[in-house]
Design a protein around this nucleic acid. Sequence first.
DNA 1: TGTACATCAGTGAACGCGCGTTCACTGATGTAC
DNA 2: TGTACATCAGTGAACGCGCGTTCACTGATGTAC
Lengths: 213, 213
Amino acid sequence: MRASSAPPARRTYRHGDLRRALIDAGVELARGGGPDAVVLREATRRAGVVPNAAYRHFSSRQELLGAVRSAALSALAVAMETELAGLGSAEDPADLARANLRAIGTGYLRFALAEPGLFRTAFAVPREPGGSADPDKVGKSGLDPFELLGAALDRLVAAGVLPEARRAGAEYLAWSAVHGLAMLVLDGPLRGLAPAETASIGERLCDMVEKGL
Amino acid sequence: MRASSAPPARRTYRHGDLRRALIDAGVELARGGGPDAVVLREATRRAGVVPNAAYRHFSSRQELLGAVRSAALSALAVAMETELAGLGSAEDPADLARANLRAIGTGYLRFALAEPGLFRTAFAVPREPGGSADPDKVGKSGLDPFELLGAALDRLVAAGVLPEARRAGAEYLAWSAVHGLAMLVLDGPLRGLAPAETASIGERLCDMVEKGL
DNA sequence: TGTACATCAGTGAACGCGCGTTCACTGATGTAC
DNA sequence: TGTACATCAGTGAACGCGCGTTCACTGATGTAC
């Protein structure tokens, strides 16, 4: 430990935006080690503040973790939106709708592999199930990851690719497939899989979903 | 705390089979609270033994957890085998093979829902990826859960339902789908789902896999 | 423009907690003669 | 069948750790007059 590794050395007594700083530090911790790594004392250390100062902004560690989780979900939504945005405009609306759903899936998988800590944090179970409708967990479009998937499925129906009758609950099926692969590769028995192999399985998985829906 | 809640009060100095007792206690802890609940001191408490006694049988908490994980995987394999065994013998071999795969899937899901703590423990990441080929994680057939799935897929090929060309890697696809649903329902945003609803989504998911493979 | 005061963000010190792990030990067991 | 001894499973006491959280405080800020 050297002086250089010490916190940023505030010059004012007040921090400025400690709440933001704690969430940012928490996100950094989550990025490195998942939800368990979001340690209140460490977050305050990184913000250059005494541990109990956190209690001005969060009533408990759990509440801080909740804010970090929302931020992680938001990052996931943004990653999916980015994948969507990178889509060249196809001619056939059916092809476009299909490409849309694929982008949702690959965006999801890409994020999971690129940011395993954040991904695991996003899906860590909160103690209390409450609190939906959190404006912090969405992307630029204002939709959260689940809603982005739903929108892609709606477009599939609109383009006549997916029969209306099969629309209800279809997000659960598609989501399960992609989420499962992510989990098996990150935390499960498929951990050793090479990135290229994972990507190719991801492709086949999207095929399966498209055909099977 | 009453005397009645005290440990079983050994009468011999030697325990008899402390290793076994510690694993059993660990499984009980995992059943209740997942991998994090497998606390070495608590396991020894339940076995009626002083904490450091555990070190005669496990070199660290991590090693105990590994043994508990194997036991959880074995329980999962047994649950899948049970589901297979309950299958009436169909006439058409193709139907039989299909029913086989379905049983694998529903056995998996059923176990996940009935024993969430053990399920989560079974898929908790071990520190060191090593140690496959563990004879403790299998079912009565000698196959672990992944191998059971592979066998079901092989039968599907043998019955002419699944084209040979699509066989390779098919376990990853099927497994992902079912595993994903389990995770979303246990730990994820689908936590609130009613059991009946979950079961029906599970059915549709199996349909999707069957069609999409 | 200047002063008095309420507000409240951050400080300093301390708490109790249960954990995993290490040490030197003791006492029951089973084997060799 | 009896005794001596090596083995090693379990004991007892202690360690350092970092954690979340509580308490009474201090000092900067911004608003009212």
